[in-house]
Protein backbone atom coordinates (compact mmCIF):
# COMPACT_ATOMS: atom_id res chain seq x y z
CA UNK A 1 0.00 0.00 0.00
CA UNK A 2 2.86 2.35 0.76
CA UNK A 3 4.03 1.88 -2.79
CA UNK A 4 0.70 3.07 -4.13
CA UNK A 5 0.93 6.23 -2.02
CA UNK A 6 4.37 6.88 -3.47
CA UNK A 7 3.16 6.36 -7.01
CA UNK A 8 0.17 8.55 -6.39
CA UNK A 9 2.45 11.37 -5.32
CA UNK A 10 4.62 10.94 -8.40
CA UNK A 11 1.49 10.97 -10.49
CA UNK A 12 0.30 14.17 -8.85
CA UNK A 13 3.64 15.80 -9.65
CA UNK A 14 3.33 14.54 -13.20
CA UNK A 15 -0.15 15.94 -13.65
CA UNK A 16 0.90 19.28 -12.18
CA UNK A 17 3.80 19.47 -14.61
CA UNK A 18 1.32 18.96 -17.44
CA UNK A 19 -0.63 22.08 -16.55
CA UNK A 20 2.26 24.36 -17.37
CA UNK A 21 2.47 23.58 -21.06
CA UNK A 22 -0.12 25.95 -22.58
CA UNK A 23 0.79 29.53 -23.57
CA UNK A 24 0.86 31.71 -20.48
CA UNK A 25 -0.41 34.81 -22.29
CA UNK A 26 -3.53 32.97 -23.47
CA UNK A 27 -4.06 31.56 -19.98
CA UNK A 28 -3.84 34.99 -18.37
CA UNK A 29 -6.19 36.52 -20.93
CA UNK A 30 -8.65 33.65 -20.54
CA UNK A 31 -8.60 33.88 -16.75
CA UNK A 32 -8.79 37.67 -16.78
CA UNK A 33 -6.34 37.69 -13.87
CA UNK A 34 -2.56 37.49 -13.50
CA UNK A 35 -1.33 35.08 -10.82
CA UNK A 36 1.79 36.64 -9.42
CA UNK A 37 4.06 35.06 -6.80
CA UNK A 38 5.31 37.51 -4.16
CA UNK A 39 6.99 37.50 -0.74
CA UNK A 40 5.05 36.39 2.30
CA UNK A 41 5.55 39.90 3.64
CA UNK A 42 8.55 42.18 3.19
CA UNK A 43 7.84 45.85 3.82
CA UNK A 44 8.48 48.02 0.77
CA UNK A 45 8.75 45.10 -1.64
CA UNK A 46 5.59 43.10 -1.09
CA UNK A 47 3.28 43.37 1.90
CA UNK A 48 -0.45 43.88 2.37
CA UNK A 49 -1.33 47.35 3.69
CA UNK A 50 -3.87 48.10 6.44
CA UNK A 51 -6.73 47.45 4.03
CA UNK A 52 -5.31 44.14 2.84
CA UNK A 53 -4.21 45.57 -0.52
CA UNK A 54 -0.79 44.32 -1.63
CA UNK A 55 1.75 47.12 -1.95
CA UNK A 56 5.44 47.30 -2.71
CA UNK A 57 8.14 47.49 -5.32
CA UNK A 58 7.81 43.86 -6.43
CA UNK A 59 4.03 44.09 -6.31
CA UNK A 60 4.20 47.13 -8.60
CA UNK A 61 5.91 45.00 -11.28
CA UNK A 62 3.03 42.49 -11.08
CA UNK A 63 0.49 45.29 -11.37
CA UNK A 64 2.30 46.83 -14.34
CA UNK A 65 2.33 43.49 -16.20
CA UNK A 66 -1.36 42.95 -15.40
CA UNK A 67 -2.14 46.43 -16.71
CA UNK A 68 -0.11 45.82 -19.88
CA UNK A 69 -1.83 42.51 -20.61
CA UNK A 70 -5.33 43.00 -19.21
CA UNK A 71 -5.59 46.78 -18.99
CA UNK A 72 -6.24 46.63 -15.26
CA UNK A 73 -3.57 46.92 -12.60
CA UNK A 74 -5.87 45.33 -10.04
CA UNK A 75 -6.45 42.17 -12.08
CA UNK A 76 -3.76 40.40 -10.09
CA UNK A 77 -4.08 37.48 -7.76
CA UNK A 78 -1.14 37.68 -5.37
CA UNK A 79 0.23 34.34 -4.23
CA UNK A 80 2.51 34.72 -1.19
CA UNK A 81 5.34 32.20 -1.45
CA UNK A 82 8.21 31.20 0.82
CA UNK A 83 11.70 31.03 -0.63
CA UNK A 84 11.41 27.28 -0.54
CA UNK A 85 8.37 26.80 -2.74
CA UNK A 86 8.71 29.74 -5.11
CA UNK A 87 10.34 27.93 -8.05
CA UNK A 88 8.15 24.86 -7.71
CA UNK A 89 5.08 27.10 -7.78
CA UNK A 90 6.33 28.76 -10.94
CA UNK A 91 7.38 25.56 -12.69
CA UNK A 92 4.14 23.80 -11.86
CA UNK A 93 2.04 26.61 -13.34
CA UNK A 94 0.51 27.67 -10.03
CA UNK A 95 1.63 31.22 -10.81
CA UNK A 96 2.23 33.02 -14.11
CA UNK A 97 5.22 35.02 -12.95
CA UNK A 98 7.38 35.41 -9.87
CA UNK A 99 8.25 38.86 -8.57
CA UNK A 100 9.79 38.05 -5.27
CA UNK A 101 13.24 39.54 -4.59
CA UNK A 102 14.76 36.62 -6.44
CA UNK A 103 18.47 36.65 -7.30
CA UNK A 104 19.45 35.97 -10.89
CA UNK A 105 22.13 33.27 -10.81
CA UNK A 106 23.67 31.00 -13.41
CA UNK A 107 22.33 27.74 -12.04
CA UNK A 108 18.81 29.07 -11.53
CA UNK A 109 18.72 30.44 -15.06
CA UNK A 110 20.32 27.43 -16.75
CA UNK A 111 19.52 24.42 -14.61
CA UNK A 112 16.22 25.17 -12.90
CA UNK A 113 14.18 25.87 -16.03
CA UNK A 114 13.68 29.56 -15.22
CA UNK A 115 14.00 32.68 -17.31
CA UNK A 116 14.90 35.96 -15.63
CA UNK A 117 13.08 38.82 -17.29
CA UNK A 118 15.50 41.49 -16.15
CA UNK A 119 16.65 43.22 -12.99
CA UNK A 120 14.42 45.56 -11.06
CA UNK A 121 16.76 45.99 -8.10
CA UNK A 122 20.54 45.61 -7.85
CA UNK A 123 21.17 44.34 -4.37
CA UNK A 124 23.89 42.73 -2.29
CA UNK A 125 23.98 40.69 0.89
CA UNK A 126 24.55 42.60 4.10
CA UNK A 127 24.54 42.09 7.86
CA UNK A 128 22.40 43.77 10.49
CA UNK A 129 23.48 43.86 14.15
CA UNK A 130 22.47 45.59 17.33
CA UNK A 131 24.55 48.70 17.91
CA UNK A 132 25.32 47.66 21.48
CA UNK A 133 27.03 44.52 20.16
CA UNK A 134 30.04 46.73 19.56
CA UNK A 135 30.81 45.43 16.09
CA UNK A 136 31.70 47.84 13.31
CA UNK A 137 32.70 45.50 10.53
CA UNK A 138 31.70 42.08 9.22
CA UNK A 139 35.28 40.92 9.76
CA UNK A 140 34.64 41.08 13.53
CA UNK A 141 31.79 38.59 13.32
CA UNK A 142 33.90 35.54 14.14
CA UNK A 143 31.84 33.10 16.18
CA UNK A 144 28.59 34.96 15.73
CA UNK A 145 25.22 33.27 15.71
CA UNK A 146 23.59 34.27 12.46
CA UNK A 147 19.91 34.16 11.52
CA UNK A 148 19.47 33.37 7.86
CA UNK A 149 16.44 32.76 5.67
CA UNK A 150 16.83 29.26 4.32
CA UNK A 151 16.62 28.33 0.66
CA UNK A 152 18.26 31.50 -0.62
CA UNK A 153 21.54 32.44 -2.23
CA UNK A 154 22.47 34.20 1.02
CA UNK A 155 23.01 30.83 2.66
CA UNK A 156 25.75 29.92 0.18
CA UNK A 157 27.30 33.42 0.17
CA UNK A 158 27.53 33.32 3.94
CA UNK A 159 29.31 29.96 3.97
CA UNK A 160 31.73 31.21 1.30
CA UNK A 161 32.42 34.53 3.03
CA UNK A 162 33.18 33.03 6.43
CA UNK A 163 35.31 30.29 4.90
CA UNK A 164 37.27 32.77 2.82
CA UNK A 165 37.92 34.92 5.91
CA UNK A 166 38.78 31.96 8.13
CA UNK A 167 35.98 32.71 10.56
CA UNK A 168 33.45 30.42 12.18
CA UNK A 169 29.76 31.03 12.76
CA UNK A 170 26.63 29.30 13.93
CA UNK A 171 23.84 29.38 11.33
CA UNK A 172 20.25 29.51 12.53
CA UNK A 173 18.13 28.66 9.48
CA UNK A 174 14.68 30.27 9.43
CA UNK A 175 11.79 29.91 6.98
CA UNK A 176 10.32 33.40 6.69
CA UNK A 177 11.47 36.96 7.10
CA UNK A 178 8.94 37.56 9.91
CA UNK A 179 10.28 34.66 11.95
CA UNK A 180 13.84 35.77 11.39
CA UNK A 181 12.88 39.21 12.65
CA UNK A 182 11.33 37.76 15.83
CA UNK A 183 14.37 35.56 16.50
CA UNK A 184 16.78 38.44 15.91
CA UNK A 185 14.87 40.79 18.20
CA UNK A 186 14.67 38.12 20.91
CA UNK A 187 18.45 37.92 20.80
CA UNK A 188 18.42 34.32 19.63
CA UNK A 189 20.99 35.39 17.06
CA UNK A 190 23.56 38.18 17.03
CA UNK A 191 23.28 38.93 13.35
CA UNK A 192 20.56 38.87 10.72
CA UNK A 193 21.78 38.52 7.17
CA UNK A 194 19.91 38.86 3.92
CA UNK A 195 19.84 41.27 0.97
CA UNK A 196 20.73 44.77 2.14
CA UNK A 197 17.46 46.18 0.82
CA UNK A 198 15.47 43.65 2.83
CA UNK A 199 17.57 44.47 5.90
CA UNK A 200 16.67 48.14 5.49
CA UNK A 201 13.02 47.20 5.04
CA UNK A 202 13.07 44.97 8.10
CA UNK A 203 14.88 47.53 10.21
CA UNK A 204 12.26 50.13 9.27
CA UNK A 205 9.54 48.02 10.85
CA UNK A 206 11.36 47.73 14.21
CA UNK A 207 10.07 49.65 17.21
CA UNK A 208 13.40 51.39 17.65
CA UNK A 209 15.35 51.20 14.37
CA UNK A 210 18.14 53.36 15.80
CA UNK A 211 19.34 50.54 18.04
CA UNK A 212 20.28 48.51 14.99
CA UNK A 213 22.73 49.07 12.17
CA UNK A 214 23.56 47.52 8.82
CA UNK A 215 27.28 46.78 8.56
CA UNK A 216 29.14 48.43 5.67
CA UNK A 217 30.25 45.19 3.98
CA UNK A 218 28.23 43.94 1.05
CA UNK A 219 29.44 40.41 0.46
CA UNK A 220 27.70 39.45 -2.76
CA UNK A 221 26.01 40.57 -5.95
CA UNK A 222 22.26 40.05 -5.79
CA UNK A 223 20.54 41.24 -8.94
CA UNK A 224 16.84 40.81 -8.15
CA UNK A 225 14.24 40.52 -10.84
CA UNK A 226 10.98 39.03 -12.05
CA UNK A 227 11.10 35.40 -13.22
CA UNK A 228 9.04 33.38 -15.69
CA UNK A 229 9.06 29.75 -16.80
CA UNK A 230 11.60 28.72 -19.40
CA UNK A 231 10.19 27.73 -22.76
CA UNK A 232 7.47 30.36 -23.08
CA UNK A 233 9.38 33.12 -24.85
CA UNK A 234 6.38 35.31 -25.84
CA UNK A 235 5.35 35.58 -22.19
CA UNK A 236 8.93 36.21 -21.09
CA UNK A 237 9.10 39.05 -23.64
CA UNK A 238 5.99 40.67 -22.20
CA UNK A 239 7.34 40.70 -18.65
CA UNK A 240 10.81 41.81 -19.78
CA UNK A 241 9.54 44.67 -21.92
CA UNK A 242 6.98 45.83 -19.38
CA UNK A 243 9.86 46.30 -16.95
CA UNK A 244 11.88 48.01 -19.72
CA UNK A 245 8.91 50.26 -20.48
CA UNK A 246 8.85 51.47 -16.87
CA UNK A 247 12.56 52.26 -17.03
CA UNK A 248 12.34 53.96 -20.43
CA UNK A 249 9.43 56.00 -19.10
CA UNK A 250 11.64 57.39 -16.35
CA UNK A 251 14.40 58.08 -18.85
CA UNK A 252 12.00 59.96 -21.12
CA UNK A 253 10.11 61.75 -18.36
CA UNK A 254 6.83 59.91 -18.81
CA UNK A 255 5.15 59.90 -15.40
CA UNK A 256 1.92 58.69 -13.86
CA UNK A 257 0.66 62.29 -14.11
CA UNK A 258 1.39 62.97 -17.76
CA UNK A 259 1.10 59.51 -19.35
CA UNK A 260 -2.59 59.93 -20.24
CA UNK A 261 -1.91 63.25 -21.90
CA UNK A 262 1.23 62.06 -23.75
CA UNK A 263 -0.44 58.82 -24.81
CA UNK A 264 -3.48 60.58 -26.26
CA UNK A 265 -1.71 61.80 -29.38
CA UNK A 266 1.70 61.51 -30.99
CA UNK A 267 4.22 64.02 -29.69
CA UNK A 268 7.60 65.30 -30.85
CA UNK A 269 9.75 62.42 -29.40
CA UNK A 270 9.43 59.32 -31.65
CA UNK A 271 10.62 56.89 -28.93
CA UNK A 272 7.93 58.11 -26.54
CA UNK A 273 5.43 57.70 -29.35
CA UNK A 274 6.57 54.13 -30.02
CA UNK A 275 6.53 53.39 -26.28
CA UNK A 276 3.03 54.70 -25.73
CA UNK A 277 1.65 53.22 -28.94
CA UNK A 278 0.82 56.43 -30.78
CA UNK A 279 3.31 55.41 -33.47
CA UNK A 280 4.41 52.03 -34.87
CA UNK A 281 3.04 48.67 -33.81
CA UNK A 282 5.19 47.50 -30.88
CA UNK A 283 2.16 46.41 -28.83
CA UNK A 284 0.89 44.18 -31.62
CA UNK A 285 4.28 42.45 -31.83
CA UNK A 286 3.82 41.39 -28.21
CA UNK A 287 0.24 40.35 -28.89
CA UNK A 288 -1.05 43.22 -26.73
CA UNK A 289 -3.03 46.44 -27.20
CA UNK A 290 -1.21 49.44 -28.67
CA UNK A 291 -1.41 51.32 -25.37
CA UNK A 292 -0.02 48.44 -23.28
CA UNK A 293 2.94 50.42 -21.93
CA UNK A 294 0.80 53.46 -21.19
CA UNK A 295 -1.48 51.24 -19.13
CA UNK A 296 1.49 49.79 -17.25
CA UNK A 297 2.91 53.22 -16.47
CA UNK A 298 -0.51 54.59 -15.44
CA UNK A 299 -0.81 52.12 -12.55
CA UNK A 300 1.96 53.43 -10.32
CA UNK A 301 4.17 55.57 -12.51
CA UNK A 302 7.58 54.95 -14.04
CA UNK A 303 10.50 53.07 -12.46
CA UNK A 304 11.71 56.08 -10.52
CA UNK A 305 8.27 56.90 -9.17
CA UNK A 306 7.74 53.30 -8.07
CA UNK A 307 11.12 53.31 -6.35
CA UNK A 308 10.50 56.54 -4.47
CA UNK A 309 6.95 55.57 -3.49
CA UNK A 310 7.81 52.12 -2.15
CA UNK A 311 11.41 51.99 -0.94
CA UNK A 312 12.84 55.46 -1.61
CA UNK A 313 14.36 57.93 0.82
CA UNK A 314 11.01 59.46 1.76
CA UNK A 315 9.66 56.11 2.92
CA UNK A 316 10.47 54.46 6.27
CA UNK A 317 12.72 52.02 4.40
CA UNK A 318 14.81 54.91 3.13
CA UNK A 319 16.90 53.32 0.39
CA UNK A 320 18.89 55.65 -1.82
CA UNK A 321 18.95 55.00 -5.55
CA UNK A 322 22.67 54.05 -5.54
CA UNK A 323 23.24 51.33 -8.13
CA UNK A 324 19.60 51.57 -9.01
CA UNK A 325 19.82 55.04 -10.47
CA UNK A 326 19.44 55.39 -14.24
CA UNK A 327 22.60 54.81 -16.29
CA UNK A 328 22.47 58.50 -17.18
CA UNK A 329 22.85 59.31 -13.48
CA UNK A 330 25.65 56.91 -12.67
CA UNK A 331 23.56 53.86 -11.89
CA UNK A 332 23.09 50.48 -13.59
CA UNK A 333 19.46 50.83 -14.66
CA UNK A 334 19.54 50.64 -18.44
CA UNK A 335 17.22 49.37 -21.12
CA UNK A 336 17.54 48.46 -24.79
CA UNK A 337 15.78 50.93 -27.08
CA UNK A 338 12.12 50.78 -28.04
CA UNK A 339 12.19 50.46 -31.80
Amino acid sequence: MKKSVLLGTIAAVGVMAGVASAGTLDDVKANGVLKCGVSTGLAGFAAPDANGRWEGFDVAVCRAVAAAVLGDGDAVQFVPLTTKVRFTALNSGEIDMLSRVTTWTFSRDVDLGLTFAGVNYYDGQGFMVRKDLGVASATELDGATICITTGTTTELNLADYFRANGMSYEPVPIETNAEAQQQYLAGACDVFTTDASALAATRATFESPDEHMVLPEIISKEPLGPVVREGDEPWGDIVRWTLNALITAEEKGVTMGNVAEMGAAAGPDPEINRLLGTEGGLGAMLGLEANWAANAIAVGGNYGELFEANVGEATPIGLSRGLNALWTQGGLIYTPPFR
Partner: peptide, 28 residues
Protein backbone atom coordinates in the same frame (compact mmCIF):
# COMPACT_ATOMS: atom_id res chain seq x y z
CA UNK B 1 0.74 7.81 -14.62
CA UNK B 2 4.46 7.01 -14.70
CA UNK B 3 4.56 7.46 -18.45
CA UNK B 4 2.77 10.77 -18.07
CA UNK B 5 5.21 11.86 -15.40
CA UNK B 6 8.28 11.01 -17.46
CA UNK B 7 6.83 12.67 -20.54
CA UNK B 8 6.07 15.86 -18.64
CA UNK B 9 9.39 15.90 -16.82
CA UNK B 10 11.19 15.45 -20.12
CA UNK B 11 9.12 18.28 -21.61
CA UNK B 12 10.18 20.50 -18.72
CA UNK B 13 13.83 19.48 -19.21
CA UNK B 14 13.88 17.77 -15.84
CA UNK B 15 15.11 14.24 -16.18
CA UNK B 16 15.70 12.44 -12.88
CA UNK B 17 19.35 12.84 -12.02
CA UNK B 18 21.05 11.96 -8.75
CA UNK B 19 24.54 13.27 -9.50
CA UNK B 20 23.90 16.31 -7.29
CA UNK B 21 24.42 14.04 -4.28
CA UNK B 22 28.16 13.94 -4.88
CA UNK B 23 28.49 17.69 -5.51
CA UNK B 24 29.57 20.04 -2.67
CA UNK B 25 26.62 21.18 -0.60
CA UNK B 26 27.91 24.72 -0.11
CA UNK B 27 26.00 25.48 3.07
CA UNK B 28 26.75 25.06 6.76
Amino acid sequence: LLDNMYANLAAANKNPDFTFLSAPAGYD
